[in-house]
């Protein structure tokens, strides 16, 4: 696995902390998935923030704060600065949302905010699309990791543009990349890992499953399987059948 700003993750699974039925289920999901990163956010203090922080600390994983819900560069940059102080990390999952329905990244705002934050010492994980031109510009602006979407946040559709993601992976072979958002099933996560991505980030697929802990475990196994398969150099698909049982020595009956 490629390193994320110098950090080698223990497992290629990043898990969100939102939408779980209870804190106990959240803890079970992290334990059973063996996720190595937890995403968190900042919201107005309404009495529950301090206890939540203790839960996150007890998980013993890397913390990746996000700028979820930010629609402008100014909002995202200010949120990132607040998150850096709060969570004591330079990592920031940078979201600059451009469309209310698709929650698609605003590529122009994302690029600008990436430049501002990278210059300020942040280690930016930009939530982006599979667009190769944008990816190149984000890297030039100082990002050393990319987080292309699988499909829109919370949709569970899997890899919506598999071809585009494959091309993105091939275009920047040395850049650590995380498929972030839109995964619904463990097979989607396996697919992403088989394509050569370094990790996946998901939340809803686990938190909203009927049995979040079981689904978390399934995703944990799925990313392991995908990574193992990628490392094992998969065969090339063929259009025609090729017998696997030897033809030589077959009886003349």
């Amino acid at each position: 696995m490629r390193r994320f700003y110098g950090v080698s993750l223990e497992t290629p699974l990043m898990l969100g902390t939102a939408q779980y039925p209870s804190p106990a289920v959240l803890e079970a999901a992290f334990r059973d998935s063996q996720a190595s990163v937890a995403t968190v956010s900042l919201r107005r203090e309404a009495g529950k923030g301090q206890a939540f922080w203790q839960i996150i600390r007890s998980l013993g994983v890397h913390v990746l704060p996000n700028t979820a819900g930010c629609h402008s560069v100014q909002e995202a940059v200010t949120t990132a600065k607040m998150a850096r102080e709060m969570f004591e990390t330079n990592w920031i999952k940078l979201e600059v949302i451009g469309h209310a329905d698709t929650l698609q990244p605003d590529p122009f705002g994302l690029l600008e905010a990436t430049g501002v934050l990278a210059a300020d010492g942040f280690e930016v994980f930009p939530y982006t699309t599979e667009d190769q031109v944008l990816a190149g510009r984000l890297l030039a602006a100082g990002a050393q990791v990319l987080m292309p979407w699988g499909s829109p946040i919370g949709s569970g559709l899997g890899l919506n543009n598999r071809y585009g993601l494959k091309m993105l992976r091939a275009a920047f072979p040395d850049v650590p990349m995380v498929i972030d958002a839109g995964l619904g099933l463990p097979s989607h996560a396996t697919d992403a890992m088989e394509l050569g991505f370094d990790a996946v980030l998901l939340n809803t697929a686990v938190a909203q499953a009927g049995d979040p802990a079981a689904m978390a475990r399934a995703f944990g196994l799925a990313v392991q399987a995908g990574a193992l398969a990628r490392g094992a150099d998969p065969m090339e698909p063929r259009e025609m059948a090729v017998p696997s049982t030897p033809v030589m020595g077959k009886a003349w009956l």
């Binding site: 995403t39 529950k48 996000n66 979820a68």
Partner: peptide
């Protein structure tokens, strides 16, 4: 004044 705290996030 905005006073923010750690919160669940994806």
């Amino acid at each position: 004044l905005e006073v923010l705290a750690p919160m669940q996030g994806g």
